[in-house]
């Protein structure tokens, strides 16, 4: 009894190992992501980040950081002054939005058409996950193939050929004239004398 309990405990531990490993990997990944995504809040890093987040107001497809237009240069000069004056990143962004509208933001807004830009990837992920769930459930529900009499005949004949005529009692067919285990004539060894 103790042996069986020990075996069960070992099996349970073995089943848990992959899950524990997975949990460990996920936990380490989350910690690394959390540490790596913590922004550097030095003035220079904030200025560089804001320059990337703002679009050049007079060019197409360039950020303030990349553009050499007068307006972009003025913004690059202006951002450190605003940071030194104690303005938050949101305040600074808002100032430029008030001057150049939301088109100056490199990230789409969370209203109007901007919702599509934010929502489409999320919708794609959800639809993809749902598709996988539906597909897996459909595959798992698919009926297993059942052997027909014809299939069993094919298997039986193949076995006859490979076994050279020796048959297992289970292979007995009602029409093949072989002795059947279930017939009353059949006696198990040691049963000669009866009860």
């Amino acid at each position: 009894m103790h042996v069986i309990d020990d075996d069960r405990a070992t099996m349970t531990r073995r089943k848990l190992v992959p899950w524990l490993a997975l949990a460990l990997v996920v936990a380490v990944g989350i910690v690394v992501l959390a540490v790596r995504s913590r922004p550097d809040n030095s003035p220079a890093a904030r200025a560089a980040r804001l320059e990337q987040q703002l679009a050049c107001p007079v060019c197409e497809g360039q950020s303030v950081a990349d553009s050499n237009s007068p307006q972009s240069r003025a913004i690059r000069d202006d951002i450190p002054r605003r940071i030194a004056a104690g303005q938050s990143d949101a305040d600074i962004r808002q100032y430029y939005v008030s001057r150049y509208t939301e088109r100056i933001l490199e990230t789409p807004s969370n209203s109007g058409l901007g919702i599509i830009a934010w929502g489409l990837p999320a919708l794609a992920v959800i639809l993809g996950a749902l598709s996988i769930v539906v597909a897996v459930r459909r595959w798992s529900r698919a009926p297993r193939l059942e052997a027909t009499d014809e299939d069993e005949d094919i298997v039986r004949r193949a076995r006859e050929e490979t076994d050279g005529g020796e048959r297992h009692p289970d292979d007995a067919h009602p029409d093949d004239g072989l002795p059947d285990d279930s017939s009353p004539d059949h006696e198990a060894p040691g049963d000669e004398n009866g009860p």
Binding site: P70, Q71, R73, A74, I75, D78, Y96
Partner: peptide, 13 residues
């Protein structure tokens, strides 16, 4: 010199 007036007016050119 700092372009601050241009930014305050939101000039685009």
């Amino acid at each position: 010199p700092k372009g601050s007036a241009a930014l305050d007016y939101g000039t685009t050119g």
